[in-house]
Amino acid sequence: MSKMNMNLYSRGDKTFVMVNMVLIGLFTIAALYPFIYVAALSFSSGFAATAGTVVLTPVDATIAAYERVLTAPEFWHSYMNTMFYTIAGTLMSLLIVIPGAYALSRPQLVGRRFWNLMVAFTMWFHAGMIPFWLNMRDLGLLDSYFGIIIGFAVNAFNIILLRNFFESIPSSFAEAARMDGANEFQILWKVFVPLSKPAIATITLFCIVARWNGFFWAMILLTDDSKIPLQVYLRHTIAELSDDEEFAATLLSAAYSVETVTAAIIVCSIIPVLLVYPWVQKYFNKGILLGGVKE
């Protein structure tokens, strides 16, 4: 991009640009600082962390917190669990959301308005926590891998997002495929899904992030420690270290503290999401529909 020539802008425009730049700068700092702080904290000594002297860079740099985290087998176990919940859960979600959104986008669906309303309804009203828990219990889905995966597979917002995208695809694509002999499944998988990569990438990212960070319901529904995901393990660790009086007694001399261990786990848990994002992001700005039809 060429450098913006300020002479072309009026004073009002210049002010607008300046204010924008300042605001965006502030937002960026506000969003980035927690990352930097947590990373710095995770490499600081326990004493520095407890004393609150860490601001931007590690103080008394050490990897003690990481040693504490990475040597615990439960950490790796919960990490694997989170991986599993994320991958299987996202696949399950896509498997339900994509055909669901396609069906809801088709004008020939009988009772289409009604079904769309029913799906949207769940965005605003749900039964609440206890009925949901009871429901899961009665279905035998407490303390089960499958319960976590199927219980949160469907997200009305994602369905509506994808449905709207499908609806925006010119009807001639589906018609041309029908003339070519494709049935509805073939139209969906061979035409609509490839055309909807940006939208599907978006909801995939939503699913991955939601699964990866999934904490609350995993904590409620899973009591078996061998099945808990990383976020629940993180909470257990915090609780464990806080309650450990022996550990508390050595706190002033310890190489790590509750804060640094927590920060180290957070850093470990962020890395995979950071790695996935650039891969998904390439689909976001790509006009995949370009060239196929002429409006």
């Binding site: 010119p170 694509f173 041309a176 003339m179 055309l195 990569k197």
Partner: peptide, 30 residues
């Protein structure tokens, strides 16, 4: 698909994710 007719659409309706050969062959593949 069973009428044995083929149609050319106003907006072409070419599949953007397939190349020319893929577009022409789409119906045959199906």
């Amino acid at each position: 698909k069973d009428r044995d007719v083929a149609m050319v659409f106003q907006n072409y309706a070419l599949y953007p994710h397939l190349n020319v050969a893929g577009n022409i062959a789409f119906g045959l593949n199906i």
